[in-house]
Amino acid sequence: MEPITFASALANLSMMAPEIWQAVKETALMLSIGLGAALFVGGPLGIVLYLTQPGQLFAHRGFNAVLGWFVNLVRSFPFIILLVSLGPLTRILVGSTIGPVAAAVPLSFAAIPYFARLVEQTLREIPRGVIEAAEAMGASPLQIITKVLINEARAGLISSLTILTISFLSYSAVAGVVGGGGIGDLAIRYGYYRFQTDVMVGMVLLLVVIVQIIQFIGNRLASRLDKR
């Protein structure tokens, strides 16, 4: 076997450009579905977790304990086990267990409780006095949620979403192990099974670049929205 040089590795990756681009699109599809589920289901779930805590607007110790237990239960599953165990449900929902859309199902199940806890922790940082002032002015519960809680916590929520996106970028790579597609699938098929180290290194570097871009955008948005 000829030794791998930088030039040969670059030439090989250039020839694989269409496959790499397809892998990037598959990863983006998995992330968009998973993050969409996290935002529209996990976000409200996190708000409910916060509002049902003792001393909050809709305090209910029993409901909060049960909901918190369920969130922790789902979060306790390693993603690879969740990926395999949700196979039958994934087949029912999307008709297959292979491909980025199929991989997005367990990704969504993992993202929802993960983001819910991040939202809950972010809302806890809001001073209680801000909420009490809104209540004293006669604000309705919906106004308190939309105009006080979310408005005050928006910088923290952006930071939480950034953390979630980066974490689940690595989860989407794990989905490649079971045919989920994406960058992880490409790295495993070529870098591991075919012993093409240059492809493995190239995919790792690509993930590093994507993470840096996501973190940069998240930091900029959070700093712009930070009212402090």
Rank of each mutant, 00 (worst) to 15 (best):
E2R: 14
S8V: 12
A9H: 14
A9N: 09
L10R: 15
A11C: 08
P18N: 08
E19G: 12
W21G: 06
V24H: 07
K25D: 12
T27G: 03
M30I: 06
L31Y: 09
G34A: 13
L35F: 13
L35I: 15
V41G: 12
V41H: 12
G42Q: 03
G43I: 01
I47L: 14
L49M: 15
L51S: 07
T52Q: 03
Q53S: 07
L57E: 12
F58W: 13
F58P: 10
G62Q: 12
N64R: 12
G68Y: 00
G68E: 01
W69N: 09
F70R: 04
V71N: 01
L73P: 06
V74I: 11
R75E: 09
S76I: 06
I80H: 04
I81P: 10
L82S: 05
L83N: 04
V84W: 00
S85C: 10
S85L: 14
L86H: 08
L89Y: 09
T90K: 01
R91F: 10
G95E: 03
T97R: 05
I98N: 04
I98W: 08
I98E: 02
G99W: 04
P106F: 01
F109T: 00
A111M: 02
P113G: 02
Y114W: 11
Y114E: 11
A116Q: 11
L118A: 04
Q121E: 15
T122H: 12
L123F: 07
G129K: 05
V130E: 15
V130R: 06
E132G: 06
A139M: 13
P141M: 02
P141N: 05
L142S: 11
T146L: 14
T146P: 04
K147Y: 13
V148L: 00
L149N: 03
I150H: 09
N151E: 15
N151A: 10
A155H: 07
A155L: 03
A155D: 05
G156W: 00
G156Q: 02
L157A: 00
S160T: 04
L164E: 06
T165L: 01
L169F: 08
V174L: 08
V177A: 04
G180C: 00
G181I: 03
G182D: 00
I183V: 06
D185S: 11
R189D: 09
R189A: 02
Y192S: 02
T197S: 13
M200S: 06
G202V: 03
V204Q: 07
V204S: 10
L205W: 13
L207T: 14
V209D: 09
Q215S: 07
I217Q: 02
G218A: 02
G218V: 03
L221S: 04
D226G: 03
